[in-house]
């Protein structure tokens, strides 16, 4: 899941800096990717088996997804801001 989110982040940033998508479109693309990964994990046999571990540990699966994907969206926003800042500095100096 982490690998998937990082890959999508890189793809979004690449197309964003090429000017082919804007920030809103990149977030829409990311939301679609969240839907895909959640759908895959619900229908993947091994993933559904490991749900029992998280439930036994007292974690709600929905809450785990919410926290993980919120963190990813925030990390994407921060990464994007930093890269825009770097790009701006490079254009000045």
């Amino acid at each position: 899941m982490l690998l998937w989110c990082m890959t999508i982040n890189m793809i979004c940033i690449y197309y964003l800096f090429r000017g082919e998508v804007n920030i809103v479109e990149s977030y829409i693309f990311k939301i679609m990717s969240y839907g895909l990964i959640i759908g895959f994990r619900y229908y993947n046999y091994n993933s559904t088996k490991t749900f029992f571990y998280f439930r036994n540990a007292g974690y709600g699966i929905d809450r785990l997804y919410l926290y993980a994907l919120t963190c990813d969206a925030l990390a994407y926003g921060i990464l994007l801001s930093l890269l825009k800042l770097v790009k701006y500095w490079v254009s000045i100096f």
Binding site: N46, K49, T50, F52, Y53, R55, N56, A57, G58, G60
Partner: peptide, 18 residues
């Protein structure tokens, strides 16, 4: 039952993340 960790369940299959 699993809400708030009140009940734990050992399934017949392996359940630990690999």
């Amino acid at each position: 039952g699993y809400d708030d960790g009140r009940v734990a369940y050992l399934p017949q299959h392996n359940y630990l993340p690999q």
